[in-house]
Nucleic acid binder design. Structure first.
Lengths: 192, 192
DNA sequence: TGACAAAACTAACGTTTGTTAGCTAGAATT
DNA sequence: AATTCTAGCTAACAAACGTTAGTTTTGTCA
């Protein structure tokens, strides 16, 4: 448990507020109050409200990109890759819950280069995921259904997981991974 | 195609803007400009910005409540009920895409009684869904996995569908229903 | 055509917003 | 001991916000 710099504390505090009310509904005065200081004092540590948002979102986005790069350069079957991606998402959800909320809800409030960088990372990520699914369909491992439906069923569940993970009294991470993988790979129907 | 009242036009216009940028980032002047008028003129038709949000969200929430009530009073198996719910969500997504965006992203900006009413409807809805899943597990139709994981996997996919439905060039609704039901009921693994 | 209502307008209001400027007390460094 | 750095403060800014008041234009129907 290493000590947070004042800047990191501010970003962390802001992220909790963003998660509850969204970027635009949280004021610098709200953040300052939660830190026990005045709004103007925040600017000794950060340069703008936008910087807080960008730091938060791009950190998580980089985490996803790193994870996906590891998966695609791995020698394993498409199904194994999908399983690894699901597990990676769950790990990131647990560790970066607030950043993930900002990424999901407030990415469109990023400006200029930050916005461009984010959109590119997200597009690349989805494209990589889509390719894996298609490979699985081609090899016969995955049912020949519309790949977009598979991609988005999995992705939207994983992306929204943060909303719900803390609400329900801390489901064990390993149970969560196991059941989530099972739901998507094998469905919910009990066949026998 | 019945003619929209001026009030309905405003709410519809606002809903498109809310979907892109979120409730707080859209100003009354933005809405007015999109309507080709001045902000003050909006108040000849609506009483407040909050009224727009509440109308939008509660209309969709009522639609879901109506649908769920129809499902639970139906004589059919849990699996059939889940299938019906998935199809209902897809229909609502197609018909109320913008309202659904507001419901998902901006419900927390509802005030007082509107907020209370919404939260109650959502809680009831989830509780009904959970009960159906549990019945399916008890009867053996559904795999005995953690019901929350099943509930959440399905619900979050359905709730996020609006983001993606229009983006990908208008996938046929019936194909979408068929594949989505198949993904959740049978999974993605091909067991030939 | 004149009367009336509907729906637009201009102007302004009181707040709230993100941010800057300048200051001060204490801690760290020289 | 003198200096510089750190991290807070008060005060204020210009812009943007939702909304109100009062006025003018437009359309409808007697």
């Amino acid at each position: 448990m290493k000590a947070l710099s004042r800047k990191e504390e501010i970003i962390s505090t802001a992220s909790h507020l963003f998660k509850e009310k969204g970027y635009n509904a949280v004021t610098m005065r709200d953040i300052a109050e939660a830190m026990g200081m005045k709004a103007a004092s925040l600017y000794n540590h950060i340069s703008s409200k936008q910087e807080i948002l960008a730091t938060l979102i791009l950190e998580v986005a980089n985490e996803f990109t790193r994870g996906m790069n590891a998966v695609i350069s791995d020698v394993s079957s498409p199904l194994e890759k999908i399983q690894t991606i699901i597990e990676m998402h769950i790990d990131i959800t647990v560790n970066y819950s607030e950043g993930l909320a900002a990424l999901n809800n407030d990415w469109m409030h990023l400006e200029n280069d930050h916005l461009k960088a984010f959109v590119k990372m997200r597009t690349d990520y989805e494209e990589n995921f889509r390719t894996i699914i298609k490979q699985g369909i081609d090899s016969g491992e995955i049912h020949a259904r519309h790949p977009e439906v598979i991609l988005f069923s999995i992705l939207s569940t994983l992306r929204t997981l943060y909303v719900w993970y803390q609400k329900r009294g801390k489901l064990d991470v390993n149970v969560l991974k196991k059941d989530m993988v099972a739901v998507f790979l094998n469905g919910i129907v009990n066949k026998h």
